[in-house]
């Protein structure tokens, strides 16, 4: 099977995020970047599917991002992916969701695929939309927020459990399809030492927009950010103190009822 795993470079979850002095984005210096955590599940699920289906199966990592994404792509190759396409073009520094989707869709089409695994959302822009837009552009079904994935014996269909409010939906889909991954789907493996050695020789195909056949950025920006601002400061905590824990509990109940009026 031909399996694609999407991978995006994002700030580490621990990173302190500050707005730049121009107010046009975040300060990137000093931030550690990692593979989007949900994309790690995507890579892992792709590898498991290949291991299960065997034969001439192949996992291709597709990443659109700056130069520095290369080391993260190498990590996915060290986990076991076979090769990668890295779309790197200065014109794609701050892409619109539709632009990202168009570029990723073009790569997927050029490479060919039976299935595309991706993250349910990228934890930088938190849009949770690029892959669904891409699925529509590719005219294939999508199943979002997968916590279990099972390929059918004929390899033309799959059953997915996707998380919803108060439970899971069991979705049956034909392939090819786009599947976005949620925590719980699997435990991503670590790259082994031999894996890291092998990854050095694996191919990362670098592509610009021109290489993909785009005369320029595909499409204009459809939205505009007018303002960046930090999280409003919290009003400060009121500590509920009493000599006896019971009195503290009693006072808290009073505050919740009379002051905060939430119960």
């Amino acid at each position: 099977m031909k399996i694609i795993a999407l991978l995006k470079r994002v700030p580490d979850t621990e990173a302190k995020i500050l707005i730049n002095p121009e107010g046009t984005g975040i300060k990137e210096d000093g931030i550690k970047f990692v593979i989007n955590p949900y994309d790690e599940y995507a890579v892992e699920e792709a590898l498991r599917l290949k291991e299960k289906t065997g034969g001439d199966g192949k996992v291709t990592v597709v990443c659109m991002g700056p130069e520095e994404s290369t080391e993260l792509i190498r990590t996915a190759l060290a986990m076991g992916a076979d090769d990668a396409v890295h779309v790197c073009d200065a014109a794609l520094a701050k892409p619109d969701a539709f632009v990202s989707a168009a570029v990723l869709a073009k790569v997927a089409k050029d490479e060919g695929f039976d299935i595309i695994f991706c993250g349910k959302q990228a934890i930088d822009d938190d849009m949770a939309q690029v892959h669904s837009i891409m699925a529509e552009m590719l005219d294939v079904p999508q199943v979002n927020v997968a916590v279990a994935f099972e390929i059918a014996a004929d390899r033309a269909r799959a059953t997915i459990r996707r998380r919803i409010e108060g439970g899971d939906e069991r979705v049956e889909t034909s392939l090819p399809a786009v599947i976005s991954c949620e925590k719980g789907l699997n435990e991503p493996r670590y790259a082994s030492l031999p894996g890291i050695m092998k990854a050095k020789k694996k191919e990362i195909r670098r592509k610009t927009l021109a290489d993909l056949g785009f005369p320029g950025v595909p499409g204009e920006a459809r939205s505009r950010i007018t303002r960046w601002f930090p999280l409003p400061k919290s009003g400060g905590v009121k500590m509920v103190q009493a000599d006896e824990p019971r009195d503290a509990a009693k006072e808290l109940v009073r505050l919740l009822r009379e002051e905060a009026k939430v119960i």
């Binding site: 459809r222 007018t226 960046w228 930090p230």
Partner: peptide, 13 residues
């Protein structure tokens, strides 16, 4: 955005 560490406002173009 960024898991709620900052916010943005946006309009369609």
């Amino acid at each position: 955005v960024y898991s709620g560490k900052v916010y943005v406002e946006l309009v369609r173009a």
